[in-house]
Structures are given as structure tokens and as C-alpha cells.
């Protein structure tokens, strides 16, 4: 098994506080890997650190992407190597049309056709006729903006898509569309690191990891990890190892 991403002892501080405390993780090629864990465990922080956002420069350890340590690269450089991120709460872009936003990610692949634009919107269950010429701004609902952000990831065809809670703000009925979208990303050749609180999404993954207090407690079969989390960690008592172990 070759890994697209390997994290070794990854550490990160924010305002003097250690948030990632030695994360070790391996993600295979075209693997859907979900990260679960309590609120405040450090899941979003891990996502931002992998993307190299400002203020998330690692303090220790390494990020090996496709055999190369990318920990010192800029966001743009990482993106051009094929890593991208969908935020838990997407940005608003006043005045930017959905079609132009979706085309941005495709620049690296030599542009995008009208058909591909429409197809990306259909995959997130938005009617292209209605949405292509709207603005990614105030006038869209939170759930619509999340879908559009996911569509912008589809058009980019990344090698590794990091999705931070793609299910949050999405109605329950549409949850299975998010699941099929994640599968579609995989079928198109992407590996997917998906942070989620939803069992349906964890269940659709190839592998899962449980994050607790800034490190990965356990990785393995998604159902098993999910069960372990439910039985040992809820309610979270904020200790590195769950107390309920007998």
C-alpha cells in the first residue's frame, strides 16, 4: 500500500497553546479517510495545518505528501501539488459568480467546459440553470454555499481533498448526496480526508481515525472506530485516554 499522505509527530501551537500534540497518520491513494472526535479535539486545526494556512505553521514533525515533505510550502504551492481544502464555514465572495468561482480550481487542469461546470453543480444537487450565474455572496444560504464550495473541489480534481465537516449545515435528506459526492471524488482519483460528526459519512469511508486532545488515538475500520468513540469517549472528559476503559 502506498501512502499519499504521511504525518509524523506533527505539532502545532496557537497563541502559545499546543493544539496538535504529535499527530501520526497515514492516508492511502484514493482512500476515503474520516477523522472523528469531540468538539475541540483539533480536527479543523489539523486540516488548516495540512493546507498551510497563515498562523498554522507547524512547530514540529513532518507532512509527507507523495514522498515529499511539504511542511515548508505555501498554500499555493501545496494546492498546485494537488492538495485542497473545503472549510467548515465557507467564505463569502461578494460579486463573484458561481461559474467563475468553479472555474478557478480548474485553471491548473487547463480550464473547464460548460458541461463540466454543470456537471459539478449537479453532483452537489444544485440546478445549474439556477445557480451558475448567481453570486457566491450574501444571497446564498449557508448550505448552498457549502455545496458550491464542494463543487469547486470537484472541478479542481485534487489529489487530496480535505473536507472539514462537509455535512454541517446540509439538511438530513441531502446527507446521502454528500456521501455519493465523496465517493465520486474517490472514483475520479482523489484521496479524501473528511472530518465529520456523522456516522453515515464515517461508515462510507475506507478507514477512520479518532482524534482526541490534539493527537490520533486510534485508526482502523470506520465502524469499529465509531463504536469505540461512542462507547469510550462520550461524554468527552478531555483526558488524553478515555476513562471508561475497564
Amino acid at each position: 500500500m502506498s501512502y499519499i499522505l504521511t504525518l509524523k509527530n506533527l505539532e502545532l501551537c496557537r497563541d502559545g497553546k499546543k493544539i496538535l500534540r504529535g499527530v501520526n497518520l497515514e492516508i492511502g491513494n484514493q482512500e476515503i479517510h474520516s477523522i472523528i472526535g469531540a468538539n475541540g479535539a483539533g480536527k479543523s486545526t489539523l486540516a488548516y495545518t495540512l493546507m498551510g494556512l497563515q498562523g498554522y505553521e507547524k512547530k514540529g514533525g513532518s507532512i509527507i505528501f507523495d514522498g515529499e515533505n511539504i511542511a515548508e510550502l505555501s498554500i499555493t504551492e501545496r494546492a498546485r501539488k494537488g492538495i485542497t481544502l473545503a472549510w467548515q464555514e465557507p467564505a463569502r465572495f461578494e460579486g463573484l459568480k458561481v461559474r467563475d468561482y468553479l472555474a478557478i480550481g480548474a485553471r491548473g487542469n487547463g480550464g473547464i467546459t460548460e458541461e463540466e461546470l454543470k456537471d459539478a453543480l449537479c453532483k452537489v444537487d444544485l440546478n445549474p440553470e439556477k445557480y451558475l450565474d448567481r453570486e457566491v455572496g450574501e444571497a446564498l444560504s449557508g448550505g448552498e454555499r457549502k455545496r458550491i464550495e464542494l463543487a469547486s473541489i470537484i472541478t479542481m480534481k485534487p489529489r487530496l481533498a480535505i473536507l472539514d465537516e462537509p455535512d454541517s449545515g446540509i439538511d438530513v435528506v441531502s446527507l446521502k448526496e454528500i456521501v455519493s459526492l465523496i465517493r465520486a471524488l474517490k472514483e475520479n482519483g482523489s484521496s479524501v480526508l473528511v472530518i465529520t460528526h456523522r456516522e453515515e459519512i464515517a461508515a462510507a469511508s475506507d478507514k477512520a481515525s479518532l482524534m482526541c486532545e490534539g493527537s490520533i488515538l486510534r485508526s482502523g475500520d470506520p465502524m469499529e472506530i465509531s463504536e469505540f468513540f461512542k462507547s469510550r469517549c462520550i461524554p468527552c472528559d478531555n483526558r488524553v485516554y478515555p476513562l471508561k476503559e475497564n
Binding site: L53, Q54, I75, T76, A91, I104
Partner: peptide, 16 residues
């Protein structure tokens, strides 16, 4: 300019 907007577009491969 909103930092999250800039970083989102950079994460799609644009330079700053």
C-alpha cells in the same frame, strides 16, 4: 481583503 477568501482561492492554486 478577507483572509478566508484569499486562502480559499490560494487553496485552489492561485497565487496571493
Amino acid at each position: 481583503v478577507d483572509k478566508k477568501e484569499v486562502e480559499t482561492l490560494m487553496a485552489r492554486g492561485l497565487d496571493e
